[in-house]
């Protein structure tokens, strides 16, 4: 094989590679256009799974004496669902969304204020000797 042949082959390969790269870029652009704007499910799901593990280790370290306040405070923080209720109420969605969103805001507000307040009341009672 002469050096000239090699050079010709290399040039050919380089050309093929550039065509492939162009194709890939085109495919990527199409995918990017069609992809949903929200974060892909797999990312959210990874966060979810990791959070379950964090929850597992954090909750095992809670002293049994404080299991009642734990329940009250987890109830209060799960009311962060108010974020969804607020978006439903406050954005230009539909009347149904406004109404259901509003009722959801009222319900979880009971929980947020009630949950943190009752937790606080309980914790204030735990005293040292």
């Amino acid at each position: 094989m002469t050096p000239a042949d090699l050079a010709a082959q290399a040039a050919d390969l380089a050309h093929q590679a550039s065509v492939l790269a162009q194709n890939a870029a085109g495919v990527a652009a199409v995918v990017a256009q069609n992809a949903p704007p929200a974060a892909p499910f797999v990312y959210l799901f990874s966060i979810f799974v990791l959070a379950v593990f964090v929850g597992y280790y954090v909750v095992w370290s809670v002293t049994p004496a404080l299991h009642s306040p734990l329940m009250a405070v987890t109830n209060a923080i799960s009311s962060v669902i108010i974020v969804g209720a607020m978006l439903a109420t406050g954005l230009h969605g539909s009347m149904v969304a406004h109404v259901f969103g509003f009722f959801a805001v009222v319900l979880v507000s009971v929980n947020i204020f009630g949950g943190f307040a009752v937790t606080n009341r309980m914790l204030a009672m735990f005293k040292k000797k």
Binding site: I47, F48, V54, G55, V58, V59, L70, M71, T74
Partner: peptide, 17 residues
Amino acid sequence: IGNLALIVTGALVGSSG
């Protein structure tokens, strides 16, 4: 709704319960 705070909190509360 793709909200991180809700997903994480829900997971914490779920595993706690």
